[in-house]
Design a protein around this nucleic acid. Structure first.
Lengths: 249, 249
DNA sequence: TACTACATCTCGCAT
DNA sequence: ATGCGAGGTGTAGTA
């Protein structure tokens, strides 16, 4: 199939709303929020049904270039220095990629039917739910007050008071807490102090671990760290069978 | 091609180090840092040459599931409730996805040759470079200190002094600065104060814009905002041709 | 390795 | 639309 035929195919695929993919040899220019150039090499290009464009190199987890949906996709046959090439341009807002394709190795497009939503668990909100249900994980005298306090200064994960009446702001993190987590907590504590006009407010950072610098900073602010592991998730039993083929050991 | 033949093909593709893709109907379970389930639907699965696994739904910019390289990929023919299905499992560290495939619509694999690196500009570091070269963008009396000194104190973007001898810590952002940018700047200012034992230290947030809350917080800390646009990048002239085909208007 | 911050972050949620 | 924070964040740079 020559480039002219490919252009016809690609146009049809996009008009039909098909998920369109091709393996090709190309160079890529990007201009928009930043600018980039990628010299010629083999890549896979994916144009999704909503107009998302993804370009992947043969290695690495992230797309090397992308355009957010809905991208306007244009194709053009070009001749440069005695050589034909397929020019592909995708535009969305101020972002634009220009792809010069010298060879298409493979092309396939198909309308895919999905629409299912992923059910995901193990988020930070589940950890704050757990702390509200089991406040003793923070301290024996901790009593949670309400659900998330969603203010314009950000939302507070858990909010309650200690036995001596001190208000406690809890910020929880699923992973090792760093400096930014401490800064965030500090912001909330100060906000509560100034908004409610009270001084007996403390902050508690609840996380499975904390970095040394963050702990030092936390103590400087008269706040404390409470080691709390995120909610236990059901561990799916790994399949171990002899017949299974393995690669990438 | 039946599932048994597909398994043979897939194994060969992975052994050969080919970039392997297929369109299929499947459900996906994920277990690792979190847990997820996605009910049956049509998706595209990509196994990269380094063992990265990406699964994309027909819409949306992000993979709905993924496994980081190098994933161990296993295939198995299963029979459940009178129906054959292809079971695909990818494992990397504690992360695992299990895919139950009831139909493969299309399969293609090819070894791709690349290795080119992207040349990217428009990063925040270029903005701080600009401020070091054009300190008058901050203030007529701002004198930046050397880059050497700047790294000595950590992650401070630009560091210098004003005409009256006050030390100035500059934090720059390429986009609208929010609360976290102010918190970050505040941390740096306090670090310098305690490290140098001096009090005449101020913070300047340099960004194209700042949110109202962030500006209020900034002023509370005796710091200031300086409106600075990120470095001008060469704007690639948009191609405007009549013949170009358009979709996703 | 651990820690820190950027990212063409993306995404959802609430104002 | 904007603001804010989480993310299975990923990725690079540095100590």
């Amino acid at each position: 199939m020559n480039f002219e035929e490919y252009i016809g195919q690609l146009q049809q695929s996009l008009q039909r709303g098909e998920l369109t993919t091709f393996f090709c040899h190309c160079s890529i220019q990007y201009s928009g929020r930043a600018e980039s150039y990628l010299d010629f090499g083999d890549r896979i290009i994916i144009i999704k049904q909503d107009g998302t464009v993804l370009i992947h190199q043969p290695e690495g987890g992230m797309p090397i270039n992308y355009i957010k949906a809905p991208a306007k996709c244009e194709f053009e046959l070009q001749r440069e220095e005695e050589q034909e090439l397929l020019f592909f341009q995708a535009t969305s807002g101020n972002d634009q990629i220009q792809v010069h394709i010298t060879e298409i190795y493979h092309y396939y497009a198909q309308r895919l039917i999905d629409g299912k939503k992923q059910d995901l668990s193990g988020k930070e909100s589940e950890m704050s739910d757990m702390l509200r249900e089991q406040p003793e994980l923070i301290s024996p005298d901790f009593k949670p007050l309400s659900r998330e306090e969603h203010t314009k200064y950000g939302f507070i994960d858990v909010f309650g008071h200690l036995g001596d009446g001190t208000l406690a702001v809890i910020e929880c993190k699923r992973y090792t807490a760093g400096l930014s987590a401490v800064s965030q907590l500090r912001r909330y504590v100060e906000k509560i102090k100034s908004a409610k006009g009270i001084t007996k407010v403390t902050g508690i950072l609840a996380a499975p671990a904390i970095t040394a610098n963050a702990l030092e900073m936390l103590h400087n602010f008269q706040c404390s760290f409470k080691q709390v592991d995120p909610p236990k998730r059901h561990i799916r039993k790994k399949r171990e069978q002899q017949k299974i083929q393995q690669f990438f050991s």
